[in-house]
Design a protein around this nucleic acid. Structure first.
Lengths: 220, 220
DNA sequence: ACCTGAACACCGTTCAAGT
DNA sequence: ACCTGAACACCGTTCAAGT
């Protein structure tokens, strides 16, 4: 609150730091928050599960004591939710970019989005599992967090509507229902490959294309 | 080894048991093993995740001390693998029964099997997650355990082959590939419903039928 | 202002011991 | 023969305290 450089500031500037991570200067307490999120995301990718991740491991990775995490987050759930929000953002950005890169053909855009979804999951299996198989969302109370990942489905619906408007899909089409069917099929492609690596799978892009064309009743 | 009723037997028969669960008599040490499996299965259904389950909770549920679990299993993984084997057996039995009940039409049998798979998952979400999303299978070393759940896929393939032999499927058909596509779609139906209960889903049996007919290129 | 040490009740697992 | 108590290194979380 007071901008005067007082006792604490003096101490920080002069004391040689004993902990691995140097103490943040005044007003930079937020840096620790970002470091915690980055470390959590890294460990989540390595562990492949929110439950296997420990806050103490996050604190070790950051170079800080366990209670320091609680300066920025009320509990472990809150850290995970914050990371999940970032990850959903990254996923959605990736999907939109893939659809945009596919050009003007709405079916091509939809196929590109579908492929990108599965590829993202296979490239980030730990993160995919946190977002789509994690236990964290059952304990969410904040209604703002409940809409997590909804955007991806909405984008799929809008791709379908563009394709239907262009007359590229056989009628009659309940686009929202079709989008949900597609999402389920695509999730199956990504999820089973992540969870059953022992099974001999076909090329994921080929499976995505086959399933999308089948659900849309397009020629194989 | 020796059938003589000696000191320990005498003690068991006469001492009033302090622990919640009474000590098993000679030769019935196996009863504890079964109780542990049953308790684990129950708690797994409740927790919905192998990682959330604790062996200490299993021991409490059985009424025994934590180290007692180690009399029958080398570690937590082994308990989970034993339960998973039972669960896979139950699932496969359920699917075979559903297919058999559907009668002689091979497509009807396949549809019944597909529906039964998803219904089993929705009725046993915790168990389904352990079998198809659990971390336990990545740590399996025993090759005999690696074939877990393979039977379900093989049965799907044989249903498809029956249908193809009856001329019910449009050619040309790589039945194994088609079976894998179907499995992915069906897993998506079950898994997303379990993991995203907040989404408004359609009737699961309707989605199963739509996806199966789409993948097999049958009339909707 | 920013962060930690010590503590509590949990966990998986081990091992010497109890009946 | 069947089972437990006490211990170890972990975990999430709290709270009084340190710089």
């Amino acid at each position: 609150m007071t901008p005067v450089k007082g006792f604490w500031h003096h101490f920080f500037m002069t004391s040689t730091s004993l902990p691995r991570r140097s103490r943040a200067p005044r007003g930079e307490g937020e840096r620790l928050r970002g470091d915690i999120l980055k470390a959590t995301s890294r460990l989540l990718a390595r562990m492949g599960s929110d439950e296997a991740l420990s806050l103490r491991a996050v604190a070790r990775e950051v170079g800080v004591s366990p209670p320091s995490v609680y300066l920025h987050f009320p509990d472990k759930q809150a850290v995970l939710v914050a990371v999940a929000a970032e990850l959903f953002g990254d996923l959605e950005h990736t999907l939109d970019a893939a659809a945009a890169d596919a050009g003007d053909d709405p079916v091509a855009a939809l196929l590109a989005r579908a492929r990108a979804y599965v590829i993202w999951g296979m490239k980030n299996p730990g993160h995919y599992k946190v977002l789509y198989e994690g236990t964290l969302l059952r304990h969410i109370t904040d209604p703002a967090d409940r809409s997590f990942g909804r955007t991806a489905l909405l984008a799929l619906i809008s791709d379908l509507e563009r394709a239907a408007a262009a007359g590229a899909l056989p009628p009659p089409d309940d686009t929202e229902r079709t989008a949900r069917l597609l999402w389920q099929a695509l999730h199956g492609v990504a999820s089973l490959r992540i969870n059953k690596p022992g099974v001999v799978w076909d090329d994921p892009e080929g499976d995505v294309e086959a399933l999308v064309r089948a659900v849309l009743r397009l020629a194989p």
